[in-house]
Computed example of a mutant assay.
Amino acid sequence: MLDSHSTDDPIETAAREAKCPVHAPADHPKIPRAKVGVLVANLGTPDNYDYWSMRRYLSEFLSDKRVIDYSALIWQPLLQGIILSKRPFSSGAAYKSIWNEEQGESPLMTITKSQTAKLRARLTERYGEDVMVSFCMRYGNPSTLKVVREMIAAGCQKIVFFPLYPQYAGATTATANDQFFRALMKEKWQPPVRTVPAYFDRASYIDALAQSVERSYGALETKPDILVCSYHGVPQRYLKEGDPYHCQCQKTTRLLKERLGWDDTQIITTFQSRFGPEEWLQPYTVEEVARLAERGMKNIAICAPAFSADCIETLEEINEEIRESFEEAGGERFTYIPCLNDDEAHMAALEEAIVENLSGWL
């Protein structure tokens, strides 16, 4: 399954169109018509919110050395014994609160499918049938390995791989690339590939962010006292080890501020989703929103520029846990500004990045 929006199976279509190369002997294997693949990747999602679905997903996610880099001799007994005996229940309950019951999938899956369909329409209009667009997940399904194999079977002799993370981090962009390259290691005939770099400072992305803020503010009766840009956190030591994530998050906020024509008092950068005992990037969103309320800022807005699609960290953590922290500290109005998702300005920014990386190939 490449994605639920396809009207025809690309592999079956490729098999029908496959031909023996000119000048080759009659018994030569048929070769599909050559295409260029565009593969977008997101973090992933459990197949369901029951205990075993959550345990499988969390085990894969939390076993990734890019995410948790502790010694496996220490970490795996702790993970498999203590953490995964309890965490699937709490995480499952969180996923259940946001689950798309109509489609039987998480919001991240629903949104990623829509993003892929819109990108496919845009790129097909531009390049015709010479391009094939699909998506994969780093954790869970559809797996990177499965989709890479499908794309190659469908005739993709070159692939542009696009991790949908605006800011680069080892725990997001790098691990998605790792998995993509691991999939290629299993292929007899490896296609040439390009990976799309982080787009945290791309003007079209910043403009799409600004438009979403302006729309949200325009719909409110009272302008919020401050906009909180909440990014997913990573351990503080990653910054010292050379990960550029923190700097790229700060630059995204600065460029958004400049695009909106604001000053420093109207926007701040915070970090959420802390995990484990060590120090992570600060200030922590859940604590900072409480401090804002205590300092008299009773009306705040919050957005999540590190996420290309709404997911558990935005729909549940921000809009439920972080909102609760703000209100318990005396906050009165809490506005969550949705991720860019499949907004047309966002799709245009992603298309722009893809077209740049297709240069010379199509």
Rank of each mutant, 00 (worst) to 15 (best):
E129R: 13
I302V: 15
D50N: 15
Q248F: 01
L43K: 04
S85E: 05
I11M: 10
R16F: 11
R16E: 12
S85P: 00
A306P: 06
P283R: 04
V67D: 03
L292W: 10
D64M: 05
Y238A: 05
I267K: 04
M132A: 10
E125Q: 15
A117G: 04
W262Q: 10
P235D: 13
G296D: 09
F61Q: 01
S216I: 03
C311G: 09
P88V: 08
L164W: 07
A14M: 09
Q272A: 11
D27A: 11
H246T: 04
L209P: 00
E324Q: 12
N48G: 15
Y165K: 09
Y217P: 00
F161A: 11
L164R: 08
P197D: 13
D50A: 09
A117W: 03
H5K: 13
S106R: 09
S71G: 05
D130L: 03
S71R: 09
L84H: 07
R291W: 02
T173E: 03
F180T: 09
S4P: 02
G242C: 07
R194T: 12
Q103Y: 01
C247N: 14
E60K: 07
R66W: 01
V133Q: 09
K35Y: 05
Q115H: 02
C20A: 10
I111D: 03
T195M: 15
W52Y: 05
